[in-house]
Design a protein around this nucleic acid. Sequence first.
DNA 1: AGGCTTATTGACAATATTGTAAACATACTT
DNA 2: AAGTATGTTTACAATATTGTCAATAAGCCT
Lengths: 204, 204
Amino acid sequence: MANGVKRVRRTPDEARRLILDAAREAIARTGPDGLRLHDIAAAAGVSHPLILHHFGSRAGLVRALTREAIAELRDKLITAMAEPHHSTEELLGRVFEAFRDGLGQRLAWLATIDPDGDQGGSTMIQREFAEHLHARRVAAAPAGTTITQEESQFLVHLIAIAALGEAIYGTQFRRSAGLSKGPETDRRFWAWLAALIRARTTPA
Amino acid sequence: MANGVKRVRRTPDEARRLILDAAREAIARTGPDGLRLHDIAAAAGVSHPLILHHFGSRAGLVRALTREAIAELRDKLITAMAEPHHSTEELLGRVFEAFRDGLGQRLAWLATIDPDGDQGGSTMIQREFAEHLHARRVAAAPAGTTITQEESQFLVHLIAIAALGEAIYGTQFRRSAGLSKGPETDRRFWAWLAALIRARTTPA
DNA sequence: AGGCTTATTGACAATATTGTAAACATACTT
DNA sequence: AAGTATGTTTACAATATTGTCAATAAGCCT
């Protein structure tokens, strides 16, 4: 008796998804330093060798997590750019929102675990984004003005590092830096940054 | 025989410094995930229990590292602000330089190990910096213009998150994002950002 | 039904890692 | 010179952590 061991047999994709979801929650809760196979397995309701079976090693799991996070960011950014937006502020808000909900923090944390796991994925996104933005700026510019490509790249670079820094330290920084927390302050910050960018980017 | 064990007896401060230096190099080399007492001890030329003796625990060492990093940043920023600088670009360059040489990266990495180790130190710096900058802006503003305090805070916030994001991801982002690496590009980026800020911050 | 593939698991292993305790040595004090 | 305080180390311990391996069982095909 007592051998009524019911096993759930999933498809490999289902199992991988289950594990990745648990790992995502685990890293959000414990930070990159506390990412343990045992905990992830327990949270996913499986045994820890199953993780090794599906991802080869702990490093393999981290790589999969990174790939997923980058893909997620890419999707969000593409939809943000595809949606019709009228103001710079609106676009900027969407971009920053793409990093929200722990995605930016997760990316940063994953990078600390495995700096080479990115495999140039984020830079690829950045280049795409820069080209898209440049085309948009050129199209929107009044006749006779010159829009340099480097400025578009700088713009994307600034947004990228600011969004990531915000994702990592935003909460801590605002905790008692005089800035009140909440979406209200966020929106005003975006609006301010958007105005900052537009003042220079769109020469009258 | 063979018991000619020569021991070096340091003052507690010397020992702590020795260990902290080794730990600083270790975290720079291995990342926050690879910070191991054994390795630090080996690099410092001491036994690992000595670290426990002087810092109580691994967490104690991390806390000491964080405090030191924050103090270092504070010093650099204060000297940067104290030095006479004529252009916004110059000040901005100095601020970004303060995060260089791994200091920004170290701060970010330490934050991933112990998010509460900061103890509000960085926010304190940010507040100081914001007040200083605000006073400076008010003094430099032409008569009749209004300088809001919130804008000064936003400015500092932007610089802080951008500098940190730059410190963490700058290298990776520029690796193949179309931006050539090197101090030349850095300087142009600073100049561009400074112009961006000045265009809005100093209303004509 | 029987066999095959493989997802899943429990047991085991090897090493790593933080921490403890007592012995030891070094410098300072008297 | 002897004693004392404490910096330092060796030995040890307890647990954690990744990974291996063979056994098990669930679903699918014939």
